[in-house]
Design a protein around this nucleic acid. Structure first.
Length: 150
DNA sequence: GCCAACGTTGGC
DNA sequence: GCCAACGTTGGC
């Protein structure tokens, strides 16, 4: 099983939104590296951290599970939508999404600062300078280390 | 709102 | 294929 980290701006889509919806498609990823992770490596049953970015308290807020593996991101076909990409077609979709299921919301936010303070997490992709990936893998040891913070 | 870092685009 | 210009991300 693989572990992942999903970033989202809580103003747009938060852990509470997912909790309410139970299952939701993770649309709008328009970065090739993030897409390739979803398309090539993400498997049903994989777990991921839900990370809130660009907000008052950036950090990890809960856990989600991959419910459906990668399929065409239909939001790329909607000319009226925010995620429209004219180079993506029904016959030849450029972008993919997965379905994720709410698993758990943590009682507290594991803040970005707390992650930075932890020596065991010093090589986490999330903490690399200038990191802008919205979906990234998390090593099993890092996953365990983070859960142990709770 | 600022700005560093990064990805993408497009002219050459 | 290079690289400058531009747009976006995301912490602060």
């Amino acid at each position: 099983m693989n572990f992942w980290l999903f970033k989202s701006e809580p103003d747009a889509f938060s852990i509470d939104d997912l909790k309410q919806k139970k299952i939701e498609h993770w649309d709008g990823v328009r970065n090739y590296q993030a897409r390739n992770y979803m398309r090539d490596e993400m498997k049903q049953g994989d777990l991921g951290f839900f990370y809130h970015s660009s907000c008052k308290q950036p950090g990890i807020v809960g856990i989600i599970k991959i419910k459906r593996e990668a399929y065409a991101d239909f939001t790329s076909w909607d000319p009226e939508g925010d995620y429209y990409d004219p180079k993506s077609s029904v016959d030849n979709p450029r972008w993919v999404m997965v379905d994720v299921q709410f698993v758990k919301k943590f009682k507290r936010v594991i803040s970005l600062d707390e992650l930075k303070q932890n020596r065991k997490l010093q090589y986490m992709q999330l903490l690399k300078k200038g990191n802008r990936l919205s979906i990234m893998p998390v090593h099993a040891e890092e996953w365990e280390t983070i859960l142990a913070l709770l």
